[in-house]
Design a protein around this nucleic acid. Sequence first.
DNA 1: GTCTATACGGCGATAGAC
DNA 2: GTCTATCGCCGTATAGAC
Lengths: 201, 201
Amino acid sequence: MADKSNTQEKIIESATVLFLEKGFHRTSVRDIASRAKINISLMNYYFRSKEILFETIIDLLIGGAVSSLKEILDSDLDLNEKIRQYINKYIDLLISNPLLVSFVLAILNHSPDKISKLKVTDSLYNTEKFANQLDEENSKGNIRKVDPEQFYLNMLSLIAFPFAVKHVINEKNNFSNEAFNDFIIKRKDIIYNTLISSIKP
Amino acid sequence: MADKSNTQEKIIESATVLFLEKGFHRTSVRDIASRAKINISLMNYYFRSKEILFETIIDLLIGGAVSSLKEILDSDLDLNEKIRQYINKYIDLLISNPLLVSFVLAILNHSPDKISKLKVTDSLYNTEKFANQLDEENSKGNIRKVDPEQFYLNMLSLIAFPFAVKHVINEKNNFSNEAFNDFIIKRKDIIYNTLISSIKP
DNA sequence: GTCTATACGGCGATAGAC
DNA sequence: GTCTATCGCCGTATAGAC
């Protein structure tokens, strides 16, 4: 049994640093092994493949954040307040993990069959309660009629896409990482106002 | 000399099919060579690398579409009409090349240093005239004050992001490719209305 | 110029000895 | 649990035939 989970931890620690630094494709299992000072094949012993190791790390990184996003969506909050909180929490999550969007998109692109297995994409499903709430608010005359699926996609697009093109934004505007974060934080209000004004009766 | 450009064309034809079918990472140069019935090293002879071949194909696929997008943005059209045309043309382009967004994001993620060399990303730069137009319309009192950079990013996000998560959307809603296209075409109006209502005074 | 054959170093993964 | 050895791929480079 020896060090039990110590080796596993070393792999995760090293892999996390490298994945965050260079992304999935540019990090090799040999890189990970040499940084963790372990034998290459131990990576395959503890995790069955590089991809599973990667997904494990993603899930660890974002922790309960994704499920708390789902909680907001499923809560009984007032519609406006729900949208506000959802945007804020999502953007905070992505600011803490700026490569998350690219990672998830890379996986979706690389192995589309694994979509439903990814915990990260959980938040994209089960938007039923939110959809019902939009329908109800409309029938009360509080908001315009909207396709909930389209509205939710609008919200997601406005929140997530900028992180997918972070490099382009930074290069175009000569942004540092800090300047990018400032730019993104300003988006909290912008996205909220954009979404709300689009459903105002 | 033989068939002159015939070999080159065969490579491009085969590679296009495979890239569109399986994406960049899952297509090997050996796949391409065997499908084109040519020697592996000819790929390196005509194109210097797999990546350059890929970029060449992307540029061929989207042809003048990207530059015509830039033309719209730089035109003297009325703001509303400009936004409308830009959305419509962009979405038509992406419907014709549904993998384009994923491809570009994959390249951005894989080799961020090549951003400015990609012709496809040209459309993301030089939005100066559009920015000025937004400022002018605001000073005339026709629209609310907006950060042009944020507004343009909103537009781009709403247009492009859905294509990056096409697989998820299709799986969630049990969409066929046709149903996805219908869903996207409906977005032309939705995106227009969302953007316009966000700047209405 | 065009093409073939072949080889190089690196990759992710695995079988099997200890 | 750990390590060595090795497998079958990959993208790329090059020597040399036509």
